[in-house]
Simulated scan of single mutants.
Amino acid sequence: MDLGDLIRDLRTARGWSQDRLSDRINARYGTALTREYVSPWERGAVTPGAYYLRCLSVVLDVPLAVLEGQVDRREFLTDAAGAAIAPVVASDLLGAGFTRPAEQTSNYAVPLWRVNVFTSLLAARLGDEATAVAAQDAARAELPAPLPRFATHLEMHRGLMPARSGDITAGTARARTALDALPPEKHSLTMRLLMTEVEQS
């Protein structure tokens, strides 16, 4: 997969225009990009330099190694799509009346509280606060006590919501407080990545 195709696919997956992508980079890095820069990147007429690859990596939430071609780009997109779609599919199934049985009947079954954790993160990322809060409340109601990391994740999602809506200071403070309340030995890579996502929203 060409770099230009990857940039276009990542941009359109967010529902952004070329102008919006350039605006995001400008807001974060103080540059003066316009869509006239982005368009040649996506057509493959011009390859972004190392600086702009780093900017794209942060703004599009994609590892720099993927943009630099050190990781198979098509495989990355397939994996990313699967991870993003799973909570939506689960939410659609629940909305259509598919509910969990009274008891777990399979070692591969996903408990409803876990589906709600997925839904919470997805809705927080999309700015759908009502859905995120409802999913967080539902997850907390059934969350097993011996799993404090998931409770921390839910609280960090509450920090992601204001950060995504522009109040990065309040969002970061809330997410950091939640993470710091958990013993450091229980911090996972996922939590550290989520903290970075909040800080860089």
Rank of each mutant, 00 (worst) to 15 (best):
A81Q: 15
A81Y: 11
A81K: 14
A81F: 11
A83Y: 00
I85W: 15
A86Y: 04
A86F: 04
P87N: 01
P87M: 03
P87S: 04
V88T: 14
V89Y: 15
A90M: 07
A90G: 07
S91I: 03
S91H: 11
S91A: 13
D92G: 10
L93H: 12
L94C: 08
A96Y: 15
A96K: 12
A96C: 11
G97I: 05
G97K: 13
R100A: 02
R100I: 03
A102N: 08
S106V: 02
S106I: 00
P111T: 05
L112E: 12
L112H: 06
W113I: 01
W113R: 00
T119H: 05
T119P: 03
T119Y: 04
L121R: 06
A123W: 00
A123E: 01
A123G: 00
A124P: 03
R125I: 13
R125A: 11
L126P: 04
D128F: 09
D128T: 14
E129W: 00
E129R: 10
A130S: 11
T131E: 13
T131C: 10
V133S: 06
V133T: 12
A134W: 00
Q136L: 07
Q136H: 07
A138N: 10
R140G: 01
A141S: 10
A141E: 15
L147Q: 14
P148E: 05
R149C: 12
A151K: 05
A151L: 10
A151T: 08
T152N: 02
H153K: 15
H153L: 15
H153T: 14
E155S: 14
G159S: 07
G159D: 02
L160F: 12
P162N: 03
